[in-house]
Structures are given as structure tokens and as C-alpha cells.
């Protein structure tokens, strides 16, 4: 039993093993938004470090995937956590209280995708100027030259 399954023993999620050689990910779990905090607490207590918080915008299926990557210092165990929600006004729970390093990742992903991380202490823009009204990584975002020329 891998350390990921050991860590998540008490949390009711299904961990699917992945092809590490092909994808570089050891295991993946698709969970519900309410479960994220308990998953993170379990991982934190097993010394998993947070690699990144990001998202994938799927225009074709009208979904927004929140993606969290964890890894372990003592053994190779990359773990991907996915939460899927609708593209319009996506909200994910913030894990800044458990992983303090997540606050910056959430600020960045939030401004790029227009995602609200519920319960975050700090939701200011991080890399973009504070007055931007667009979210550049959303797939329906048009760059200025595209808007002017009317190309898609």
C-alpha cells in the first residue's frame, strides 16, 4: 500500500493509481469540494508538501477543473487531486489555513481563471495589476489584438 493510500485511509475518497512512466503522476483522486479540506489535513499530517494549486478550463465540456498537486519529501509520491465544477463562477474551498504556502498559489490561479477560493484570507491579485477585469487563462478570453481584428 503506497503512502498516499495510507495517508488517505480515514478519508472516504477513491485513489486511482496512474501510469507514472507515462504521466509522472503516481495517483489521482477525483473528490467533492467538501472533501478537499479533510484530504489536505490528512496529507499535511503525513508531511506531504504542496507542489502547486492550479486549474484547467475545459471549454468543450463547460467545466472547470481545480487541480492540486502534492508530493512527498521522503519518497516519490506525486498525488493529483481534482475537483470538477461548472465554468461559470467557479468556487473551490481554500486550503490556506492548512497549507500556508497555498495562499499565493490560490491568489495566482484565482486571478488567472476567475476562480473564487472560498475562505481565503487574502484574495488580492498577485501577478496581475490590481485593477484588471479579465482572466487571461480562461479559454474564452480574447487577447487585445484578437478583439480588434475580430478573429477567434
Amino acid at each position: 500500500m503506497s503512502i498516499i493510500e495510507t495517508a488517505l485511509h480515514d478519508v472516504n475518497v477513491t485513489v486511482e493509481a496512474q501510469d507514472y512512466q507515462q504521466s509522472g503522476i503516481h495517483a489521482q483522486a477525483e473528490i467533492q469540494a467538501e472533501q478537499l479540506k479533510s484530504v489536505c489535513r490528512a496529507l499535511h499530517s503525513f508531511c506531504f508538501f504542496l507542489e502547486t494549486v492550479t486549474a484547467v478550463d475545459n471549454l468543450s465540456t463547460e467545466t472547470m477543473q481545480g487541480v492540486w498537486f502534492f508530493n512527498h519529501y521522503r519518497q516519490s509520491a506525486r498525488f493529483k487531486v481534482v475537483i470538477e465544477t461548472g465554468r461559470n463562477n467557479p468556487v473551490f474551498p481554500s486550503i490556506g489555513a492548512i497549507y500556508p504556502g497555498a495562499v499565493w498559489h490560490e491568489r495566482e490561479t484565482g486571478e488567472f481563471f476567475g476562480i473564487v477560493y472560498d475562505g481565503s484570507k487574502d484574495s488580492r491579485c498577485l501577478l496581475l495589476p490590481e485593477d484588471v477585469t479579465f482572466h487571461p487563462l480562461r479559454k474564452d478570453f480574447k487577447r487585445p489584438e484578437q478583439q480588434i481584428a475580430g478573429i477567434h
Binding site: G24, H44, C47, F48, F49, L50, E51, T52, Y73, R74, Q75, S76, R78, I98, Y99, P100, G101
Partner: peptide
């Protein structure tokens, strides 16, 4: 691990983590 530190910053704190070693 809370801040996801890696590299010499982490190894200065006693954790022997290096991608060249782990993965």
C-alpha cells in the same frame, strides 16, 4: 512542507529531498 519549499532552501533545514534523487 506547508510552504512547499524545495532546493537548497529546504536542504538547509535538514530534509534530503532532491528531484535528482527522488524522481
Amino acid at each position: 512542507w506547508g510552504y512547499g519549499l524545495t532546493g537548497p532552501v529546504l536542504r538547509g533545514s535538514g530534509e534530503k529531498y532532491d528531484v535528482r534523487l527522488r524522481e
